[in-house]
């Protein structure tokens, strides 16, 4: 009996070893990834929209996305993404809960409901170079993203805030080489919406080029009779192991009325050690049709401890008009804030 048990344990162990060696042949496992984030922000004006007042509580003096709440320990979101690929077919479903993952980044449905979905799409590799994808997807436009894990800075740029967040549609991507690919697709007429207003009339395209190793560049366009037209250029170059430079430039025109915006943001980042890095975001953003412009500078550090990143950040914005407020709500041209965030990625 004892011998049989020993033999059995040996065979079980052998089976484990055998399957481990064949792991490169099997489909990738179901991937679960995501993050949670929380932050504290203090706007130096002391501005805090009181409950019951004319300004919605939680409004920020600097009106870019996320990290809005003044003098408060607040939450961003819990983000959960599932991905599975079997053979050539794959799906991604990404759910998000919390202010950042619901009303701050997702347009509610017609009855005011939110479905808490950032990505929900299926894709199929027709060949090694040609892929088809359809569903509700994060936008391909811009440098910054909704997930705090994908950004160096915790607060976001004006270019990000004013551009699309998600686009629902159908796209085809062809990779000519590892360094050149082209995507083209049709998308719902309205950005960020689960359903179209009228039809699927936005056209979008992205040309990806990697001129040298470590340098990526994306030329993007999305255009349609409802949402207008945005041209976007996003590039990043890891120049050395320690230094990375990113740039985002965009121009947007509404479909009617000649409104829109244009702007540029640069993102130099330096790794001081394997766990500490510093980055600056300098942005110039201007509204069209005689609208004001704003210059914003954000100095951020990323301090990593395994999957946890601590993000202290100082930001100062200066506008051509008095679009910010002091603590007593009188208008002013400048605003500044300190923020510290903790982001855990898994």
């Amino acid at each position: 009996m004892k011998k049989r048990l020993l033999l059995l344990s040996f065979f079980i162990a052998s089976a484990f070893a055998a399957s481990a060696q064949d792991s490169t042949k099997t489909d990738p496992p179901l991937t679960i990834s995501g993050s949670v984030d929380t932050y504290f922000k203090y706007d130096f004006s002391g501005f805090k929209a009181p409950a019951g007042g004319p300004i919605a509580p939680g409004s920020s003096n600097i009106q870019t996305s996320f990290g809005n709440e003044q003098n408060s320990v607040s939450i961003g979101m819990i983000d959960l993404a599932l991905k599975k690929k079997v053979g050539k077919a794959a799906f991604v479903g990404e759910l998000s809960f919390g202010p950042r993952g619901s009303y701050q980044s997702i347009v509610p449905g017609s009855a005011g409901e939110t479905f808490n979905i950032q990505n929900l799409y299926v894709s199929y590799d027709v060949t090694d170079k040609f892929n088809l994808t359809g569903g509700f997807m994060a936008t391909f436009i811009g440098y910054e993203v909704i997930s705090p894990v994908g950004n160096f800075n915790y607060s976001t740029s004006y270019l990000f805030t004013n551009g699309p967040f998600q686009n629902a549609g159908f796209k085809a991507t062809y990779a000519f080489t590892d360094r050149v690919s082209l995507m083209a697709g049709v998308f719902n007429d309205s950005w960020n919406s689960y359903i179209s207003n009228v039809d699927v009339s936005n056209f979008g395209a992205q040309l990806f080029i990697s001129p040298v190793k470590g340098w990526t560049a994306y030329l993007n366009v999305i255009t349609g009779p409802v949402s207008g037209t945005e041209f976007d250029f996003t590039t990043a170059y890891q120049i050395t192991d320690m230094f990375k430079l990113g740039l985002n430039a965009a121009d947007y025109s509404t479909a009617h009325g000649g409104n829109g915006f244009s702007g540029v943001a640069v993102y130099p980042q330096v790794a001081a050690s394997k766990s500490v890095s510093f980055g600056l975001r300098g942005e110039y953003f201007k509204l069209k049709n005689g609208g004001p412009d704003v210059k914003a500078f954000t100095l951020t550090s990323n301090i990593k401890a395994g999957p946890l990143t601590i993000i202290p950040e100082f930001r100062i914005d200066g506008a051509s008009t008095e679009q910010f407020v002091k603590g007593n709500l009188t208008p002013t041209k400048t605003a500044s804030q300190f923020l510290i965030a903790a982001v855990y990625a898994f």
Binding site: S33, K83, G93, Y121, W215, Q238, K244
Partner: peptide
């Protein structure tokens, strides 16, 4: 790899670490 905006794990451009240095960099 890092997760991209579409939920896929993709290579981080320009970061290459010799196998011998992985323990020092990633634990």
């Amino acid at each position: 790899y890092q997760r991209d905006r579409f939920g896929n794990m993709v290579p981080i451009p320009g970061i290459e670490v010799p196998l011998e240095r992985i323990a020092a960099k990633y634990g």
